[in-house]
């Protein structure tokens, strides 16, 4: 999958590119409006990640551009403004999703995957990790071919972990992914353990291996090692 990342903050751009390359995406970068315009005129991308507050132009204009040139391209907006106005405008202009700065790289990855599933695979994707198989269109999970009975949160948790496999994911990133803004009203993350514990138990019950490692004092890592 070919992705163009338009972001004027150089350091942030580097981090995004390095993370996504690690996920096996083909990444190109544009640090400003003009470069982005040039690249979009020449190449076709599966996805454009776009910071709408650029120093030399309005990112919203770029969305129009992209929509005119390549209808198949997915668009993910990054914004420093947590403003509904921008969000609605961006989505109205044809963006697929919207993420507010600062974000977890794992969350960005998860959103990219979701857009990719919707746009390019029409939701027919099957995600596999050894004996675990997720059919995203039906929101079903199979372990060794046997269907698992997961709650909505457990399903989302597993999907998130598998998409960001082999990476250390912080508890905060997990919590924010699953509960969004509601996380502001949580005084500790104890309740995540419950979901983690249940998920582990259910996988084990189906004869699956426990790939979920606890990274002490930090979070989790879904890995075979």
């Amino acid at each position: 999958m070919k992705i163009l990342i338009i972001e004027d903050e150089r350091d942030l751009l580097d981090s995004i590119v390095s993370y996504l390359k690690g996920e096996g995406f083909l990444c190109e970068q544009a640090p400003d409006y003009l470069t982005a315009e040039d690249k979009l005129a020449v190449h076709e991308y599966d996805l454009v990640i776009l910071d709408i507050t650029l120093p030399d132009g309005n990112g919203l204009e770029l969305i129009k551009n992209i929509k005119n040139l390549h209808t198949q391209t997915g668009i993910l907006i990054i914004s420093a403004k947590n403003s509904l106005d921008d969000k609605l405008k961006g989505l109205d202009f044809g963006a697929d999703d919207y993420i507010t700065k600062p974000f977890h790289l794992a969350e960005l990855n998860s959103r990219i995957n979701a857009i990719n599933r919707r746009r390019n695979l029409q939701g027919k994707e099957r995600l596999t990790f050894h004996e675990i198989e997720i059919v995203t269109s039906a929101k079903q999970v199979y372990v060794k071919g046997e269907e698992m009975d997961l709650t909505k949160k457990e399903y989302e948790l597993l999907l998130y972990l598998i998409i960001n496999k082999n990476r250390v994911i912080t508890r905060e990133a997990v919590a924010e992914h699953l509960w969004g803004d509601q996380i502001d009203f949580v005084d500790n993350y104890d309740f995540i353990y419950t979901h983690i514990k249940n998920l582990r138990r259910k996988i084990r019950e189906k004869g699956g291996e426990d790939y979920l490692k606890t990274v002490y004092g930090m979070g989790y890592k879904f890995t075979e090692k």
């Binding site: 903050e9 942030l12 981090s15 390095s18 600062p102 974000f103 977890h104 790289l105």
Partner: peptide, 14 residues
């Protein structure tokens, strides 16, 4: 923006 950089750099480090 600086907060985002701080955040992502730390996430990379871990």
């Amino acid at each position: 923006s600086p907060l985002s950089v701080l955040h992502t750099k730390l996430e990379e480090t871990i």
